[in-house]
Amino acid sequence: MRLFRRNPSGRAFAGPPTCLGSLIWNNQTMLAQAKPEPPAKAPSRPRRVVQRFPGRRHPRRGRRRGRPRDANALHPSQASPVRRDETAAMSSVREHYDNHLGPVYAWMVGGETSALARGDAEIGALDVAPRGGGIAVDLGAGFGMHAIALAERGFDVVAVDACSVLLDRLERLGQGRRIRIVRDDMQSFVDHLPGAPELVMCLGDTLTHLPDDSDVEALIEEIAGVMEPGGRFIATFRDYSQRLDGTRRFIPVRSDMDRNMTCFLEYSESHVLVHDILSERRGAEWATRVGAYRKLRLAPARFRSMLIARGFSVEQSSEPAGMVRFSSRLDHPGNPE
């Protein structure tokens, strides 16, 4: 005998006569037969056709159409995070000194007292003293390592530098001395002269801050054009014309218990990119800042020929740490050879 029952949907179904089997079988069958019908699909809207143009950025993918994807490029999720204090972007000389070197420059050269004593000894070895109008120009004066020594020997000094941090120190250290402080690029020194100088100095590695050889030549021309007859132009710079390779490109600057500085040199055809790596202790940890700027690979022979071409007689000598010194006198003003 078969039993017929009706499920909630109103349909009849048959089940076995046993009670327990009937209940189980009926429940499963009811669930299967009571399954609701799927809703009818809404009519689809017509597909919009978007015209593609080569080179346009796709609004979602963010990649320019028509350009192949770099197969070697890492997905952002695969790239290693870069610490902010380990990155370095090339900056201008002024930016590099204002933001990176200026605050630690006195420390780099051994401290203010030691640097001023060394600068005084260097000026003394050059045997310079006022003989004419008494005006001396210090290009790249910094905090006054040589400008103060010149003023103490009786010169009226025009101290030119582009770094405000260093000039603030010079203003403090040079109080009471005849020093005119000028914040400007060295190419513009003529605009700040009170008269014809008898001495122009550009010591340290300042000349290599100029963009290229033509700027160096223009500076020499300006000096020869305003200098007193028989005046002296004394300059030093580091010779980058010979490439260093391997670990020789790492140059220790100074180190103590709280600070360490090293330079790394990266050469191109006409310039060297100087990476200044500065690590400082901050409490129990060390923080590292890296800055980079370009210096000119000025060849000593090229610089010597520029001086001679503008009427200077030249004496050249080698200094420690790859530095070269040129002591020149304007023997033929306005009559270059």
Rank of each mutant, 00 (worst) to 15 (best):
V200Q: 00
M201D: 00
M201T: 05
L203I: 03
D205Y: 04
T206F: 02
T206D: 00
L207I: 15
T208N: 14
T208K: 06
H209P: 02
H209M: 07
L210D: 12
L210T: 08
L210S: 06
D212F: 01
D213A: 07
S214A: 14
L219N: 07
I220P: 05
I220R: 04
I223E: 03
I223F: 04
A224F: 11
A224W: 04
G225H: 07
G225W: 12
V226F: 08
V226I: 15
V226N: 07
M227P: 00
M227R: 00
E228P: 01
E228L: 02
E228Y: 01
P229G: 00
G230T: 05
G231M: 00
G231Q: 04
R232L: 08
R232C: 05
A235C: 06
A235Q: 03
T236Q: 13
T236K: 04
F237E: 10
D239K: 04
Y240V: 05
S241F: 06
Q242S: 09
D245F: 08
D245R: 07
T247V: 05
T247H: 08
R248S: 14
R248P: 09
R248Y: 13
R248Q: 15
R248M: 14
F250P: 10
F250I: 13
F250V: 11
P252S: 11
V253N: 07
V253S: 12
R254C: 05
R254I: 09
R254S: 11
S255I: 13
S255P: 02
D256N: 13
M257C: 10
M257D: 15
D258R: 15
R259L: 14
R259K: 14
R259W: 11
N260S: 15
N260Q: 14
M261A: 12
T262M: 14
C263V: 10
L265V: 10
E266Q: 10
E266G: 06
E266F: 03
E266I: 01
E269G: 03
H271L: 01
V272C: 02
L273G: 09
L273T: 10
V274P: 04
V274D: 03
H275G: 08
D276K: 04
I277P: 07
L278D: 15
S279E: 14
S279P: 10
E280Q: 14
R281P: 12
R282C: 10
R282T: 14
G283Y: 13
G283F: 12
G283C: 07
A284D: 14
A287L: 15
T288C: 12
R289P: 06
G291A: 15
A292L: 00
Y293Q: 08
Y293T: 05
Y293V: 09
R294H: 09
R294N: 11
K295H: 10
L296D: 03
L298H: 11
L298N: 08
A301S: 15
A301H: 15
A301V: 15
R302W: 06
F303H: 02
F303M: 04
F303W: 05
R304T: 11
R304F: 05
S305C: 06
S305Y: 07
M306P: 07
A309N: 06
R310W: 01
R310Q: 04
G311K: 00
F312S: 01
S313Y: 01
S313H: 04
V314N: 10
V314C: 12
V314I: 14
V314Y: 08
V314F: 07
E315I: 13
S318N: 12
E319K: 13
E319P: 06
A321S: 12
A321W: 13
A321P: 09
M323D: 11
V324G: 03
R325V: 11
R325F: 01
F326I: 09
F326V: 04
